[in-house]
Simulated scan of single mutants.
Amino acid sequence: MKLLLKLISGIIVGVAVGAGYYAVGGGFLEFLVRLLATLETILGSFIFFMIPFIILFFIASGISQINQGSGKVVGATLGIAYVSTIGAGLLAYFVATLVMPRITDGGSVPEEGSAPGAFFEFEIPPVMDILTALVLAFALGIVITLTKTDTMRKWVDDGKIITEYIIEKVIIRILPFYIAGVFAGMASEGTVFDTLAVFGLVLLVAVILHWVWLTIQYTVAGSLLKRNPFAMLKNMLPAYFTALGTMSSAATIPVTLKQTKQNGIRNRIADFVIPLCATIHLSGSTITIVSCSIAVMTVLPGYEVPGFASMFGTILLLGVVMVAAPGVPGGAIMAASGVLMSSLGFTEAAVAFMIALYMAQDSFGTATNITGDGAVAGIVDAVEQRINK
């Protein structure tokens, strides 16, 4: 919640400086706008430099560690979590393509370069591109699992620890300044207030879709287990509200585990599925990312919402990359930024809007992720019982 307040403060400062420049013009306010633009350039360059490392180390480490428990339970959990994530993305796409153009009508964003620019250009070229990092991560993770190479496993695990430390201690802390630069540029063109009103409605649609997807998940789990899905969902409310407060799937695991067992899920299934899904099952985050990406494309100039075939490939990639999402606030959008840039052609400005939108609802997305883990555990329990009959 402190991070959210800092981000809001960054938006307020950026809007105040940019709107002041738009109303009054040059002088000291222009200097402030250019200063914030320079900060945005430097900080943004560092953020995007780190994205390939996030994908490489988190996916490789995640795959190399998915070797505990029986093969059937592991396979069922991975498959169901992935299908749930893809289903959530598809729901968001179909709803967003119908709703977002109507919501965003009237919102606008200045074309890149139309606001006062930075004092100088600053770019840190990434060590590798996004797809290279993704392929390398899978290759390393799978080979480490098959060969049980302890040295390489320790290397990717240590890389994950270092990368997560940089995210938590550096990137998350500089985000308010980065966001301030983005909104200062937008406000300096006089478009910010219409756009903020539009994005408020976008976030409301995303939160509604979270609850629609949770209802679908528990309807499936309840039908397989022959239990009342709404009673199961009601039992998970303590986990939902805990995640709202902590903004962390990992911190909510004890509550999620307890409530999942209260739903009658067998202990050994719950004990394995809940901690694993806290890392690999991010259906709520996927809903937000897909919904907001379509909203951003309908507002930003030069973008066109892709057709189903193109977007389906992007959603499949997002489902994979969500395995790499760091367990810190905003981790999912950091991991997904690479896919948005490579698959949808997002620029740094577009990704900046995605980060601001995502962080505004991060607690709701996390709550949906962790509450949905209870449904996944229920489905895995039902599937495992049928397999063993």
Rank of each mutant, 00 (worst) to 15 (best):
G190Q: 07
E304C: 13
P238Y: 06
V198E: 04
V192R: 12
I280R: 00
L196Q: 06
F193E: 10
G307Q: 05
V212D: 02
V192S: 08
A184K: 02
D271P: 01
A221S: 11
L233G: 07
L276W: 03
N267Q: 14
A251L: 11
W213V: 09
G284K: 08
A309R: 02
P306G: 11
T215A: 15
Q262V: 14
A270L: 06
L209N: 05
V205G: 09
T246L: 14
P301C: 08
I265M: 07
V192Y: 07
F272M: 09
A270R: 00
V255T: 13
V220W: 05
L318A: 13
P238L: 07
K261E: 15
G284L: 09
S223Y: 04
A309V: 12
V205T: 13
V323G: 05
I315H: 01
V323L: 15
A221F: 03
A251H: 05
W211M: 10
G307P: 09
S285V: 11
M232P: 09
M247T: 13
P275D: 14
G190C: 10
A184E: 03
L282F: 12
V207E: 06
T288H: 08
W213F: 15
Q259P: 01
T215R: 12
G190P: 05
V207T: 04
I253M: 06
L276Q: 03
L237P: 05
T298L: 06
S223E: 09
V212R: 07
L237T: 13
G307L: 02
D271K: 00
A184T: 00
L209A: 10
V321I: 13
T246E: 05
G307N: 11
I315A: 10
L225S: 12
P275M: 08
Y303K: 06
F230P: 12
W211V: 11
V299P: 08
C277R: 00
I265S: 03
I315D: 02
V320I: 14
Q262P: 09
T314G: 09
A295H: 00
A251G: 14
G245Q: 09
V207I: 15
M322F: 08
S223M: 12
M297H: 06
L203R: 00
L204Y: 05
A187P: 09
L318H: 02
F241H: 11
V205P: 01
P238K: 04
T298F: 01
R227K: 15
L204H: 04
L233D: 00
L237Q: 08
W211Y: 14
S223G: 13
G222F: 05
L244G: 01
E304L: 13
T242K: 07
M247V: 15
R268I: 15
P301S: 07
G307H: 03
K234H: 12
F241D: 01
S188I: 06
A187G: 07
K226N: 12
